[in-house]
């Protein structure tokens, strides 16, 4: 066991901490359950975890959770692809053209902290009550961190690596693909990860607000029916979407950068 840990750290390392994390989660829910059962926490405000687990079956069967889950998931996926293409592309262009960077960087940064979700009526008018309202909302709100992190990664490439490229007479495109891009990749991934968080929050938020499609709408409906265990069960599915994305992203990153 110790031998295996030493020789194959990448494989073994993840297992025990994950178990500890899971254990902590279980312990937390048990504590909440206990506090509710003995009356310290009001069960009409926080439903007991056992009720939430019990309501999973009902929510899955009666509320078409899988269909909604898939809808929210595909909205996030499309927004994520758009984000990666446009955000990374935008960062690259801003790095390449100094003027563009000087002109845009400040307001892109300002946009990152603006509550763009409040613009949903505008998006509703443009895209109608369709999944594209959610997708575009998530996409626009999540664009700034992807652009900024891409730019940061590219500009942060160590000067000496750029000089190595120059000393080997690289063409501009070789310089980009063989040096700048791989050097910036970890930072770009941070941007994409941040972007996906923004996108998921905004997508579920707008589903909730306009009461259309997906898990956000389900949460809205269940909350209005005051079905608290059901609401929390639906929230668990949102968390599942997020976990799926992070796991996929981590897989991709490990595949691209097997060494760290």
């Amino acid at each position: 066991m110790t031998d295996a840990t030493l020789t194959r750290p990448a494989f073994r390392r993840g297992v025990p901490p994950q178990l500890i994390g899971l254990g902590a989660l279980v312990a937390f829910f048990l504590t909440v359950e206990l506090l509710i059962q003995i009356g310290v926490i009001n069960r009409f405000i926080v439903p007991p975890p056992s009720d939430v687990i019990g309501s999973f079956g009902r929510v899955i069967v009666e509320e078409d959770v899988f269909g909604r889950f898939l809808l929210t998931l595909s909205e996030c996926l499309i927004a994520g692809v758009l984000l990666t293409v446009v955000g990374v592309g935008g960062g690259v262009l801003m790095h390449r053209y100094r003027l563009l960077q000087q002109a845009c960087e400040t307001w892109v940064a300002a946009m990152a902290s603006a509550p763009i979700v409040l613009m949903y009526p505008l998006f509703l008018v443009i895209f109608g009550r369709s999944m594209w309202t959610m997708i575009m909302m998530g996409f626009v709100a999540a664009l700034p961190p992807v652009i900024l992190k891409t730019l940061e990664g590219l500009s942060g490439t160590r000067k000496v690596l750029v000089n190595v490229g120059r000393s080997f007479n690289l063409t501009p495109s070789q310089q980009f693909w063989k040096i700048l891009f791989p050097a910036a990749l970890p930072t770009i991934f941070v941007g994409i990860r941040l972007g996906l968080i923004f996108a998921l929050i905004n997508i579920v938020g707008v589903e909730f607000l306009i009461n259309f499609g997906g898990l956000g709408q389900l949460i809205n409906e269940l909350a209005e029916r005051y079905d608290l265990p059901g609401t929390y069960a639906a929230i668990c599915f949102v968390i599942l979407v997020s976990i799926l994305f992070f796991m996929t992203l981590e897989k991709i990153e490990r595949w691209l950068r097997p060494f760290d």
């Binding site: 000496v160 000089n163 190595v164 950068r257």
Partner: peptide, 14 residues
Amino acid sequence: SIGMVFQEESTFPW
């Protein structure tokens, strides 16, 4: 014709 070795660490970590 000129190959350069730099003062700073310059390997490609990837």
